[in-house]
Design a protein around this nucleic acid. Sequence first.
DNA 1: TTGTAAGCGTTATCAA
DNA 2: TTGATAACGCTTACAA
Lengths: 344, 344
Amino acid sequence: MNLKKLSSLLGLSQTTVSRALNGYPEVSEATRQRVAEFAREMNYQPNRSAQRLATGKSLTIGHVVPVADHDMMNPHFIDFIAGAGEIYHRRGYDMLISVVSEDEQNRFYESLHRNKRVDGVIVHGPTVDDERVRLLNALGLPFVVHGRTKDPEESYSWVDVNNEEVFEKAAEYLLSLGHRRIGLINGWEFMTFAERRRAGYERALRKNGIKPVPELMYSNEMIEPNGHAAMLALLDLRDTPTAVLCSSVLTAMGAIRALRDRGLRPGDDVSMIGFDDCLSFLPSTGDGGLLTAYRSGIRLAGRQCADMLIDQIEGGGDNASLLLNAELSVGKSTRPLECATAAL
Amino acid sequence: MNLKKLSSLLGLSQTTVSRALNGYPEVSEATRQRVAEFAREMNYQPNRSAQRLATGKSLTIGHVVPVADHDMMNPHFIDFIAGAGEIYHRRGYDMLISVVSEDEQNRFYESLHRNKRVDGVIVHGPTVDDERVRLLNALGLPFVVHGRTKDPEESYSWVDVNNEEVFEKAAEYLLSLGHRRIGLINGWEFMTFAERRRAGYERALRKNGIKPVPELMYSNEMIEPNGHAAMLALLDLRDTPTAVLCSSVLTAMGAIRALRDRGLRPGDDVSMIGFDDCLSFLPSTGDGGLLTAYRSGIRLAGRQCADMLIDQIEGGGDNASLLLNAELSVGKSTRPLECATAAL
DNA sequence: TTGTAAGCGTTATCAA
DNA sequence: TTGATAACGCTTACAA
């Protein structure tokens, strides 16, 4: 069933039927009713390709993910996608996810644009100096970055969490509990979020007269085994940390496993704070939970990015930005220094 | 830049240019070369919507995921997507992911089909009696199921793991170590894979003269906290199990946490086998790893499903099916019964 | 080997 | 308020 048949059956022109279906004002209420009802009855659904061709809009948002990059195809990503997907569905957009090798990536963005396959894209996992931002700006393809680059001059839309502030506050919280030797298990620091987190951590230390030392800072992909390895290394130091800050709930889990391997207990022996994106398949963190953590719903970030991008596409609009606040919720993994068993 | 401009610049007809670009045989090698080069030079990329409209193919595969269903939007899903996405990219298809509420789901499949938005879909997480299979067969929309329904008469294409056999073998392995009281922490048993796993588990017990008892069997969403809760409940039994079979590496992690909460150790006190989909962000399981597990790469399943579906679409082909084998790799979490510390 | 012309199923511009 | 008619950019008979 297509427009032509539908309209001939109705004894109307395609134009009128199309207008009726798309809510144009110049259609009489009577015919609109009749058309709508008949269309439903006939199970008519407009051919999307034809619509796209005629309007020049694809009604599709793209997400390009590098195939080998674990840091992107990670459990956080799926939650983001779930959030964004809700919005796309609600606002009548399709979500196109492309799995592309690292080196084809730029060419692929160009192709998405030239092909007119998407009206815009979401950029995941921005690095400190991300070439995608320049590329997309050059192409004129609307986009929203989940996160930020380092350069404050670059203009683009973004949704991000207050990473620097959060890690500063987290470190300060540990300092307020009396901890002076605090470890950091961070993500890759060519990723902006990780760089910012380290900056916040270091600032808190410095404000308290403590010099950040490299031996307490680890930077790696945020997966459980890396948290485990980093914590083991920290525990092997001559002067071990009494508290550790983790950039992810996954590395925090690994770190806790390392503590247990050494017969230590989180909280009791070493205080731990994780940064949690509220992954639904993991144990609950936060108030009363296992792990003291700053929490920021990544699903929410997905929704916000999607809405912002569509607003931009439809409004032809200016760049926007949104800083989400992560908040601390105290669990069982942090303890004042004096309450802790003498470590080792 | 579009075909019209490109061809007029070349002094050729659209037809010839189109044919040259699409590898039709009736074009002279000389012009093909010339066209190809010029197109590259001009950065020409065909408008996908126009192609789709003209050919009637969308070159798109759909994945419909219910929004509220944690069991689907889970970390396994992302790995599947990564695998499928690789194939789509390689074979020139787009991946459309739709996040839809449970109750719109069927209508959405219809709409995808009527809209001509996809050439086929992958069905995730089939239940024992899955209405989507009937719906899609009725619609005539090509699809491949990742998993199976219960009804062996239903005809459709699928890719699945030997769930029943694997759980039978896993239980037998535990039995061979001397364990007689074996717990099962399963997924939701309206999902076919979980039902099959229980069947395998029960068969192994019965073959060894042991009657499966409900108090040792848990069925729930496969997330860490549920594994934790189930194991706690098992440990609260008057007669606790000496070994436990977990349907997921996530519930296995929760179960291990529960053991630790009670001062017990996996392997030493309670043997554990998990079913692992090789989630890259988790600690390694298998040979020499923490957890004895049956392993089956879910990413591979994604690739297989994608290839099978595209073959079916392009070949106009018959239904196919593929049974993947999971294999046991022994880690540190299983021990002969006599070596175990007397539990509790 | 190349070209002409008719779709594909919409939307959008005019005119009535 | 409605209707012809021309795009939209490609593919594909059919002709040459």
